Simulated scan of single mutants.
Amino acid sequence: MTTPADTPDSPPWAPPGPRPPAGPEAPRAEVPDSEVPGSEATPAGESRAEAAPAVTAHGAGVPQGPEAAVGSGMPPGPAMAYPAQAQAPAPFPGSPYGPGVPQGPGVPGVGPYGVPAARTGLGVGALVIGVVGLLFGIVPFLFWLGGFMGVLALVLGIVGYGRANRGEATDRGQAVAGIVLGAVTIVVAAAWLVVLIVAAQAVERIDERVREKEGASAEPFAPDGTARPEPSPEPTETETTPSTLAFGRTHTYEDGVKVTVSVPKPYRPDGFAAGYEKGDTALRVTITIVNGSDEALDVTTALPDARDAEGARASTIFDGSRATEMFRGTVLPGKQVKAGYAFALPADADGELQIELAPKLLAYEPVIWTGPVK
């Protein structure tokens, strides 16, 4: 007779079915304790069954199969089938994380031993934004955009540096570079802002002065009723002073500035002279400028122009002997400065030299010195 436990379709943990009636029990022969190996003698008047409980494969006092029902008043039944314990799954080949756990690459987003993968986006982003922001920051009219990107790069770099310190990222170097570039960009943008503010204030002051002068020229009287003084004229040469002088004479301007051109003297250039050709007439003069005014005089633009009587330009001679020494710098009030100039006249010149000079270009009228040359 088959029971639900013996049916192939029944699960192993199904309860057993009704037991069949037990048949006649076969007589059991008793074996003396002295004949059982490894056993001790049982005291007289006590049987082995009373001395110790029956031990079965399932433990002491647990009935097993049909034999357990003997003497218990219950009919014997078939042996109970117990489900087998489920075995642990075999570990993955080569897995260092224990049985049933795949290796890191098989689980996306999880590194060795379950540690999350490091993030490197903030440091790289800070570096890129810092470079682009610095390029915009050096442009005069785009510095505001560079300043904004510099602030963004600085913030991202600081956050990325903090993550790198906590072990959550590996872009510490990029984060530090982004912080530095962001700070430099902010400084450059701030400098441009200061420059524009100062320039705007300067333009405003100039406009105010121009408006004040225009208003003063339009009103001949001051607010208190007195006549406004006329503006002083620009320094010019006096009407009694001729515009052409002989060499060695001094021309005096109205503000006290004096200019003197010496008599030309023959000059011999060295072998490395520039502006001189064989057969030309080489001459050298000394020019003296005395600042008799109350203000400093810039003589950098005092450049003499030499020509012959027909207007042909004479070339300036430069050599290793310092034939020509140009004016430089500023002359203080009451001081003077001298400079030598050498000129070469063509061989077919008419024998006359003219030098035109002004102590300061556009501020003084030029004067001509002229005379024959030998």
Rank of each mutant, 00 (worst) to 15 (best):
residue 114 G to R: 10
residue 279 G to W: 05
residue 277 E to D: 14
residue 24 P to S: 14
residue 38 G to Y: 11
residue 214 E to R: 14
residue 83 P to G: 05
residue 220 P to E: 09
residue 310 E to N: 12
residue 139 V to C: 04
residue 334 G to F: 12
residue 368 I to Q: 10
residue 294 D to G: 14
residue 291 N to H: 05
residue 109 G to F: 09
residue 364 Y to T: 01
residue 29 A to N: 07
residue 356 E to W: 04
residue 237 E to S: 13
residue 45 G to W: 03
residue 161 Y to S: 08
residue 111 G to D: 07
residue 28 R to T: 10
residue 288 T to P: 01
residue 28 R to H: 10
residue 308 D to R: 02
residue 175 A to Y: 04
residue 332 L to C: 00
residue 19 R to W: 08
residue 272 F to P: 00
residue 316 T to M: 13
residue 61 G to S: 07
residue 56 T to C: 09
residue 292 G to W: 01
residue 123 G to C: 05
residue 301 T to E: 09
residue 190 A to E: 06
residue 6 D to Q: 13
residue 248 G to E: 07
residue 5 A to T: 11
residue 246 A to I: 00
residue 191 A to W: 05
residue 247 F to W: 06
residue 294 D to W: 00
residue 118 A to Q: 11
residue 60 A to T: 13
residue 84 A to K: 08
residue 366 P to I: 02
residue 27 P to D: 12
residue 134 L to C: 07
residue 183 A to P: 00
residue 217 S to D: 14
residue 36 V to D: 05
residue 137 G to P: 00
residue 183 A to K: 00
residue 361 L to T: 04
residue 331 V to G: 02
residue 97 Y to C: 12
residue 357 L to M: 10
residue 32 P to W: 00
residue 235 P to T: 03
residue 358 A to D: 08
residue 172 R to P: 04
residue 222 A to G: 07
residue 124 V to A: 15
residue 144 W to E: 11
residue 159 V to S: 09
residue 88 A to S: 11
residue 96 P to W: 09
residue 279 G to F: 06
residue 316 T to E: 14
residue 48 R to C: 09
residue 120 T to D: 15
residue 372 P to G: 12
residue 54 A to R: 01
residue 181 L to I: 06
residue 209 R to E: 13
residue 203 V to C: 09
residue 287 I to T: 03
residue 342 A to P: 01
residue 141 F to W: 08
residue 27 P to Q: 08
residue 120 T to M: 13
residue 311 G to D: 07
residue 134 L to S: 12
residue 31 V to A: 09
residue 61 G to A: 07
residue 328 R to N: 10
residue 161 Y to Q: 02
residue 83 P to C: 02
residue 33 D to G: 15
residue 302 A to S: 15
residue 218 A to P: 06
residue 199 A to T: 09
residue 308 D to Y: 01
residue 322 R to F: 15
residue 65 G to W: 03
residue 294 D to Y: 00
residue 189 A to F: 02
residue 295 E to T: 15
residue 359 P to F: 02
residue 181 L to P: 05
residue 186 I to A: 04
residue 9 D to Q: 15
residue 88 A to L: 10
residue 16 P to C: 04
residue 168 E to Y: 07
residue 329 G to N: 06
residue 194 V to R: 11
residue 12 P to G: 07
residue 217 S to P: 02
residue 286 T to I: 05
